[in-house]
Design a protein around this nucleic acid. Structure first.
Lengths: 224, 224
DNA sequence: AGGGAAGACGAACGTTTGTTTGATCCCGAA
DNA sequence: TTCGGGATCAAACAAACGTTCGTCTTCCCT
């Protein structure tokens, strides 16, 4: 049981009908998430997954129906967890400031969960890479889910609009879009290039420092 | 001959050895760029390309060697053109300000070329999507090229460091990285989500307004 | 102890993939 | 006109793909 593996709590929490222990299912899920995150969706075959998980080839279709359904299941579970953490942090920021949190704390609720996931020793490190990948190379079902599930983003837009009531609503959306771009750019390949450019000066492994840097940049940009 | 097609000047400019007119080669190039940009690299087969181009299946391997070589050829040609435009704008900004351009004009040299390409009626609109795609789902050769070709980025970092001499060099690199993230986020899928979120309030088709918005945000973030 | 459903298994299915082959066409040079 | 070589063509290639099929195995329930 490595740190990347699922705990059974997650499995039962999101699928109430699941009564089986399904160790094989969890192994497939964990192996698929890791391989997909590292190599991309189309570059990983069902045989790669089942070999990595040490289970039979037919396990994917038996437990998840199809390769695409497995992909979507991973995507759905991880995005739900990430958005839950963001919503909770935003809620706490509201509670701390009588419903009108400053822009910095709103953006922190947006940035902190994914940035913490990106830490080298975090159990959800590969989940974040998976989600970021889904944005560009995901199934049509994934992209449709990303497109339509904007309810949690709307709450961030509302909070940001409250923090800068003089700003046109349209502008709030654009700047929120820019802030999200900062997160989606937190990919290993981008960090590698940054390291080459800076001659190893930049340390993306220091997550807290990166979060502070990103917040400085984003807050200044949003309040411009 | 649609607007997306290559002109023969490009072909001869980058491959001096080319003596053949090669209308078929240009048709394959144009069809491949469009399909790859729209559907992703792995979701487009050689048969899709040759059918779209109206040529024989073997044309890809005959003219480019392999599917991957064709991909890399498109990538190499388009990134070279984009970086050339950026370098030229940066050079002009230097010329206008005695070698010390303000941050806004440096960032404009970084943002303007890709943003102009993203305009609906621009002949390089799909080229930009292709380049952005290459960042996440590209071949290992592409990602290595992206990682190692930082020479043109170094000049932007130098110019930005001159505009804010008090800023630690390390910080300059980080904020340049953040600025690049704004560009990479200019994908159709992201714009779609933004439109859903804002209820159609945001108009990404107004490229000049978007460039101004992005510059406001990035300059404030960089000077924070 | 026995019955039965769920799970795991090896093996094969039919497609689709990128690539290669050898014949044929076309057109400029001799 | 004849020759020759680059360009195009239909056809086939082996490999890899996702999925499905029967058949064992396992283990809980009565």
């Amino acid at each position: 049981m490595t740190s990347d593996n699922d705990n059974p709590i997650d499995l039962r929490l999101l699928e109430p009908g699941e009564t089986q222990d399904a160790a094989t299912k969890a192994a497939v899920f964990a192996a698929a998430e890791r391989l997909f995150a590292e190599q991309g969706f189309q570059n990983v075959s069902v045989r790669d997954i089942t070999t990595e998980a040490g289970v039979n080839l037919a396990a994917v279709n038996y437990h998840f129906g199809s390769k695409d359904a497995l992909l979507f299941e991973i995507f759905r579970r991880r995005t739900a967890e990430l958005n839950r953490q963001r919503a909770r942090m935003l809620h706490e920021a509201h509670a701390r400031h009588d419903g009108r949190p400053p822009a910095r704390e709103v953006l922190e609720a947006l940035f902190a969960p994914p940035l913490h996931w990106s830490a080298l020793d975090h159990p959800r490190r590969l989940s974040l890479q998976f989600i970021i990948r889904a944005r560009g190379e995901g199934t049509e079902a994934m992209r449709e889910a990303l497109r339509n599930d904007v309810s949690y983003l709307a709450r961030f837009a509302d909070a940001l609009a409250q923090a800068r009531p003089d700003l046109a609503r349209e502008e709030v959306y654009w700047r929120l879009h820019f802030c999200l771009g900062l997160i989606h750019n937190s990919q290993p390949a981008e960090f590698d290039r940054l390291n080459v450019l800076s001659g190893g000066l930049t340390q993306e492994s220091d997550v807290e420092a990166l979060l502070a840097r990103m917040l400085d940049f984003a807050v200044a940009g949003f309040l411009a």
